[in-house]
């Protein structure tokens, strides 16, 4: 095979320059700014700035509320990712098995994808409203003194439910595509070898679906960490008692609302490291067990 070669040395670089510029302007530069600001203490208007070393980080980490927020974020992200993936997988498997009217089900299950997180949050506000919310009334009718305005657990339930609902459709699309890419021959062979549908799913379908599942896991963790911001901002704003403030929401509260640039930069650097670490773990540990 003939090797494609550019005649000039600069042309390839010129061709990738636009892409590099975009990455630099929108990713590298802001990240570098955040790292720089996290070591500085500055007044909101940027009139006086001083280097404070790791002071911002120490203050953030020693803050009791930050630790609580980190724990909430871990539980929240874990539950959102797990529930939205599990429900989506169930729905995808069921939708895949339908012979008639499959597209109707598919459309019904995927349209939610088009709903913006903030809109989903607003729907949540109405559904869980104290006086007009049907879900609120339903929970109360079951004898659960459901009160998301005061109770952290109840408020967490509302944001988790809405965040999961919002994410199911995305996961559903991926899982369904993954299921449909499993070769027919393999399925038929499995059908002959094993009559138990559940076992067949565990031993044949699921392993073959693992690459899709891994990808979905990565995007779900990112979703639960960052994109649920809109849901939380519209529904609880971190209340009650700061109990539903995720780490990302705290960056917004301290930096954007509170004008503490150094402190919130330190928080976002910590978050960057956390997500980086999480992604590395996912790729190193989990991916090794997956066969493409």
């Amino acid at each position: 095979m003939k090797r494609q070669q550019f005649d000039s040395f600069t042309l390839p670089y010129l061709l990738i320059a636009p892409q590099l510029a975009i990455i630099f302007i929108f990713f590298v530069w802001p990240a570098a700014q955040a790292v720089y600001q996290s070591f500085m203490l500055e007044d909101p208007f940027g009139l006086a700035s001083q280097f404070v070393g790791f002071d911002n980080f120490i203050e953030v980490v020693s803050n009791e509320h930050y630790a609580r927020s980190a724990i909430f974020t871990a539980i929240f992200s874990g539950l959102v990712a797990f529930l939205s993936m599990a429900i989506a997988l169930l729905l995808a498997v069921k939708a895949d098995g339908i012979l008639h009217g499959q597209s109707a089900y598919k459309i019904m299950l995927t349209w939610v994808y088009a709903v913006a997180p903030a809109v989903a949050g607003m729907m949540g506000v109405f559904l869980f409203d104290r006086s007009i919310g049907p879900l609120n009334h339903l929970f109360n009718a079951t004898g659960w003194p459901f009160n998301p305005q005061l109770d952290v657990f109840d408020a967490s339930v509302t944001v988790i439910l809405v965040s999961v609902w919002k994410q199911i459709s995305v996961n559903f699309i991926y899982f369904l595509a993954g299921l449909q890419s499993i070769p027919r021959a393999v399925r038929e062979a499995a059908l002959i070898d094993c009559r138990n549908g559940f076992r067949r799913f565990w031993t044949v379908t699921l392993p073959l679906l693992a690459p899709t599942g891994f990808f979905v896991l990565v995007i779900n963790i990112t979703y639960a960490f960052f994109e649920t911001f809109g849901v939380i901002d519209t529904m609880t704003r971190g209340a009650p008692g700061g109990g539903t403030a995720t780490l990302v929401y705290k960056v917004y509260q301290d930096g954007f609302l509170g004008a503490d640039i150094g402190g919130s930069s330190a928080q976002s650097v910590i978050l960057m490291i956390l997500v980086l670490g999480l992604t590395i773990v996912q790729f190193r540990v989990i991916e090794k067990r997956i066969h493409y």
Partner: peptide, 22 residues
């Protein structure tokens, strides 16, 4: 200064007082 965040701290604590958790 930083009174927006101080109010946030207050709201957080008052919520807990009236939820009976603090």
């Amino acid at each position: 200064g930083y009174y927006v965040q101080i109010r946030e701290v207050m709201t957080r604590e008052y919520d807990q007082v009236f939820a009976g958790t603090k």
